[in-house]
């Protein structure tokens, strides 16, 4: 067991506000190999896939925990290729595969289009450790839809770092389902370097028992007319603690850029703690930026209304949470995933 200070915000604020970073105690197992990786695609002949084990990562590390990878996957979608069916990457933890430090690199060349689903599962009751990194590069006019789901069990540590770079007219739709793990520490860094590039990030988080959630998202607009959207919906119950740190950083020259950020946290217990730091940083006059955050318990008027229809208190509560998540879930367009998320909400 060791104490680590991780996930520094892009800009520091006063130390006693206690949000510049997160202090966590982690029991990091010794380096082991990982075998349980699957890739599902009907278009393997159209894309390039490279899988390596035991490779040293030289990538920049924003979470701040030293990484020696035991798995790496590189996928290239060549120029002008469109892959309609989703490409699914699945990492399944079990007792023999309880340690994963992976790199996933996804490159979409010019005019390429693809959909990815990346899933981390550990259904059994054992402790596992995950420290992943997902890097995405979209060249001119490329379009990608990425869904990352963390369904690790509630004893696991889950650290995840995502980095994107978007060139001219590139569009990236990103969804993160942050459900599993007792420590959920994630870092998302997106550089919108291209003109008219667009990145929307939709996130669902769920914290229970003594979960610690530390979310650190940062989108930087460089290109003219670039668009950055962050929409985060979460629920905390029991003694869960959450830090949301979301930054939209308008860099000089990103004229007509738009950045919007929104976080909504439903608190289901008196012991749950919600902290948020929605930063707007601006070095360009001609931009449009806004953020909004809200925290509080479930709207009692809504609860009452649903209960008058003969639905129990517990069911009504779950219905409202599902409704809050609904916009994000429906956009994923994946029934299996929707059912799994709803199952997790039912277990609250």
């Amino acid at each position: 067991m060791e104490k680590y200070i991780l996930n520094e915000t892009p800009l520091r604020t006063a130390n006693n506000f206690d949000i510049n970073n997160i202090e966590v105690v982690l029991d990091i197992p010794k380096y082991k190999s990982f075998e349980n990786f699957n890739i599902y695609t009907e278009n393997i002949e159209k894309i390039k896939v490279e899988v390596n084990q035991n490779k040293i990562s030289e990538n920049e590390n924003k979470i701040g925990l030293e990484r020696q990878t035991n798995y790496s996957v590189k996928i290239i979608i060549p120029e002008n290729i469109t892959i309609e069916e989703k490409i699914k990457l699945e990492f399944n933890f079990d007792e023999d595969n309880a340690f994963l430090v992976e790199n996933i690199d996804i490159l979409l060349e010019k005019n390429a289009k693809a959909n990815f689903e990346i899933q981390y599962n550990s259904e059994e009751s054992f402790s596992n450790f995950h420290n992943g990194q997902l890097n995405i590069l979209l060249q001119e006019n490329a379009k990608a839809n990425i869904v990352v789901s963390n369904f690790n069990n509630n004893q696991s540590d889950n650290l995840y770092e995502m980095k994107n770079e978007l060139k001219d007219n590139a569009t990236l739709k990103y969804t993160i389902i942050e459900i599993g793990g007792k420590n959920k520490i994630s870092n998302y860094y997106s550089k919108l370097v291209g003109e008219n590039s667009e990145n929307s990030l939709n996130v669902i988080y769920l914290g229970k028992e003594n979960d610690v959630i530390d979310i650190n998202y940062n989108m930087e607009t460089y290109g003219k007319n670039s668009k950055a959207y962050i929409n985060v919906q979460g629920v905390l119950t029991d003694s869960a603690k959450k830090n949301f740190k979301g930054t939209i950083d308008f860099k000089e020259g990103s004229k007509k850029a738009i950045g919007k950020e929104n976080e909504n946290c439903i608190l289901l217990s008196k012991q749950a703690k919600s902290k948020s730091l929605p930063m707007l940083l601006c070095h360009e006059e001609d931009v449009e930026g806004e953020h909004g955050v809200s925290s509080g318990k479930i709207d009692e008027a809504k609860l009452f209304y649903i209960m008058t229809k003969g639905i129990s208190y517990d069911e009504a509560r779950k219905l409202i949470i599902k409704a809050n998540f609904n916009d994000i879930i429906k956009n994923i367009n994946n029934n299996e995933l929707e059912n799994r998320i709803n199952e997790k909400i039912d277990q609250i």
């Binding site: 604020t13 206690d18 929605p278 930063m279 707007l280 449009e288 930026g289 925290s295």
Partner: peptide, 21 residues
Amino acid sequence: DTIPVNDVQTDEVEFSHEAKI
């Protein structure tokens, strides 16, 4: 730059924050 920290330690609260630039 807008750098607001919102720290909510109870559920019985109505907390809203908005900013525009």
